[in-house]
Simulated assay, not measured.
Amino acid sequence: MSTNENRAGRVVLALGSNLGDRLGILQGAVDTLFAPGPLRLVALSPVYETAPVGGPEQDDYLNAVAVADTLLTPEALLERVQEVERAFHRVREVRWGPRTLDVDVIAYDGLVRTDPALTLPHPRAHERAFVLRPWADIDPDAEIAGRGAVRDLLAGVADQELRRRDDLVLRVPR
Score class of each variant (00 low, 15 high):
G110L: 06
L111G: 03
V112C: 12
R113I: 02
D115I: 11
D115G: 11
P116Y: 12
P116H: 13
A117G: 10
A117S: 14
L118C: 08
L118P: 11
L118G: 05
T119Y: 05
L120Y: 02
P121H: 13
H122D: 08
H122F: 07
H122S: 07
P123T: 08
R124G: 13
A125E: 04
E127D: 15
R128G: 04
R128N: 04
R128I: 04
R128M: 02
V131T: 09
L132A: 06
L132I: 06
R133I: 14
P134S: 12
P134T: 12
W135F: 09
A136I: 05
D137T: 09
D137G: 09
D139A: 15
D139F: 01
P140W: 09
E143L: 00
E143W: 02
R147Q: 12
R147H: 12
G148E: 07
A149K: 14
A149N: 00
V150N: 03
R151A: 13
R151M: 08
R151G: 04
R151D: 08
D152Q: 03
L153Q: 00
L154N: 01
A155S: 12
A155H: 08
G156S: 03
V157K: 07
A158C: 05
A158E: 13
D159P: 04
E161T: 12
E161Q: 13
L162A: 09
L162I: 15
